[in-house]
């Protein structure tokens, strides 16, 4: 039995974050096991009109490159994806991305709730959802959907967050399986990776 009681049934990891999540995200990506077997799908709040720089900054430290997928791009095992600026990013049945320019949700585009919610719909109990530091409630409803469809839910330990509104909002609306510090999330990824070797 491993610490987090994991197995190799998971198909994807989805991560949401906002204000104060960048450092944590960098730490996770820089310490990710090599050839990590699952896609990592990130919806992070970002400046709507700055298309460049963010994905490059994440890629610089990440073990493997991070890309902003195109509409209808297939999701690959081990791919690390970031929702592009000024688009909502959904995952569709058939395992590919779809972009949209619909109204902002929770004052955000990309909205974390949309990415998390569509991942929950597609991957059901084969999904791991992680919510990091942030200053609004976006992502809480998405985490609820993940939990309701049997996925595993993790939030960053609020005391460690630069701004704890986001993880606290998720804790208030749904069952969260693990409340972890970033270092423990790094351990979680290592443990998860072992299940697939």
């Amino acid at each position: 039995m491993n610490k987090f009681n994991l197995d190799n049934s998971y198909k994807a990891v989805v991560i949401g974050g906002s204000a104060g999540s960048f450092q944590g995200m960098i730490k996770i990506l820089s310490q990710l096991p090599k050839n990590f077997p699952l896609p990592i799908i990130m919806a992070l709040h970002r400046l709507k009109h700055v298309r460049h720089g963010f994905v490059e900054a994440l890629s610089l430290k990440s073990v493997s490159p991070v890309t902003e997928p195109y509409d209808k791009e297939s999701i690959k095992k081990g791919g690390i994806y970031l929702a592009p600026a000024n688009y909502h990013m959904s995952v569709e049945l058939g395992n590919y991305f779809a972009m949209s320019t619909e109204e902002m949700v929770n004052n955000s585009r990309p909205a974390i709730d949309i990415t998390l919610g569509t991942c929950a719909y597609v991957y059901k109990d084969k999904l791991i959802g992680i919510l990091l530091s942030g200053a609004n409630k976006d992502g809480a409803l998405g985490m609820k959907h993940i939990s309701e469809r049997g996925g595993l839910t993790i939030v960053q330990e609020p005391s460690e967050c630069m701004i704890d509104t986001m993880p606290k909002a998720a804790l208030a609306v749904t069952k969260i399986d693990h409340v972890l510090k970033v270092d423990q999330i790094v351990e979680f990824f290592k443990e998860l990776d072992k299940q697939y070797k």
Binding site: S90, E92, A98, S100, E102
Partner: peptide, 9 residues
């Protein structure tokens, strides 16, 4: 139509 956005609409 793409399913997820159509469903949201």
């Amino acid at each position: 139509y793409a399913m997820s956005s159509f469903k949201r609409r």
